[in-house]
Amino acid sequence: HDTTVHINGLRIEVHGASEEILKWIEEAARRGVEAEEIKRWVEEALK
């Protein structure tokens, strides 16, 4: 999927993410993980 995830006011563009990654992002956000940190993880995961 190409999608934009909104976390604590930060937009994260996610290209080619699976449902699993999207669920993981939402879970991390709920746990209060910094949005910048999530963004870094997602970029690494999608390389």
Rank of each mutant, 00 (worst) to 15 (best):
E26L: 11
V14P: 03
E36G: 08
E13L: 02
E36Y: 08
L46F: 06
L46Q: 04
A45H: 11
R11S: 14
I25V: 09
E20S: 10
E43W: 06
A17H: 05
H15V: 13
E43K: 06
A28M: 14
H15Y: 14
K23F: 07
E43N: 07
K39G: 05
A28G: 01
I21V: 09
E19D: 13
L10C: 08
A28Q: 07
K47A: 11
E34W: 05
R11K: 14
D2N: 14
E13K: 02
E27W: 05
E36R: 06
E19M: 13
E20H: 11
V42N: 00
E43H: 07
K23I: 09
G32S: 01
R40W: 05
E37P: 00
A35I: 13
G32D: 03
E43R: 05
L10G: 08
K47F: 07
R11W: 14
A35F: 14
L22R: 09
H15G: 14
N8R: 02
R11G: 10
E26W: 13
A17C: 00
E13I: 05
A35R: 04
I12Q: 02
K23D: 07
I38A: 01
T3R: 05
E37S: 07
R31T: 13
R40V: 07
G9I: 03
K39I: 13
K39A: 10
H15K: 12
A17Q: 04
E34H: 13
G16Y: 08
G32A: 02
H1W: 14
E13W: 06
I38F: 01
A28C: 03
V42K: 00
E43Y: 10
H15D: 12
L22H: 04
I12P: 01
G16K: 07
L22V: 07
I25M: 07
E36D: 11
V14T: 09
E26Q: 11
E44W: 11
I25N: 00
A28D: 01
L22T: 03
A29C: 12
V42W: 02
S18G: 08
E26G: 05
R11I: 15
E43M: 12
E43Q: 11
V5N: 03
V42Y: 04
A45L: 12
V33I: 10
T4P: 07
K23G: 06
A28Y: 05
G9F: 02
T4Q: 10
E34Q: 11
T4R: 04
H1Q: 13
L22A: 04
R11Q: 13
E44T: 08
V33T: 05
W24T: 01
E27L: 05
H1G: 13
G9C: 04
A17P: 05
T4Y: 12
L46P: 00
I21M: 09
R30P: 03
D2V: 15
V14H: 03
I12R: 00
T4M: 13
E34I: 08
E20G: 08
G9T: 04
I12M: 04
I21R: 00
N8H: 08
N8C: 15
H1I: 14
G32V: 01
S18W: 08
W41V: 11
T4I: 15
A35P: 13
A28N: 02
G32N: 03
R31M: 14
W24E: 01
E43T: 09
A45D: 01
A29T: 13
V5H: 06
A45C: 09
H1D: 12
H1R: 08
A45W: 15
W41S: 02
I12N: 02
A29F: 15
K47V: 10
V42C: 02
H6Q: 11
W24N: 01
N8D: 12
H15T: 14
N8I: 06
L22Y: 05
A28L: 14
V14K: 01
T3L: 14
I21G: 00
D2H: 14
E43F: 09
A17R: 03
E44S: 09
N8E: 09
K39V: 10
H15Q: 13
W41D: 00
R40A: 12
V33Q: 04
A29Y: 14
V33C: 07
H6V: 15
V5L: 14
R31H: 12
W41P: 00
A17I: 10
S18Q: 05
T4K: 06
K47I: 07
R11M: 15
R30Y: 12
G9K: 02
G9P: 05
E19K: 12
E34V: 10
H6M: 14
I21W: 04
E37F: 12
E37T: 09
V42G: 00
I38L: 04
A28V: 02
T3Y: 13
W24Q: 03
V42T: 02
V33S: 02
R30T: 11
L46T: 05
I38R: 00
L46Y: 07
K23Y: 07
G9R: 00
K47W: 07
V5S: 05
L46C: 08
W41M: 07
E37V: 12
V33F: 07
D2T: 15
E44N: 10
E37Q: 09
K39N: 05
T3K: 09
H15A: 14
I25W: 01
L22S: 01
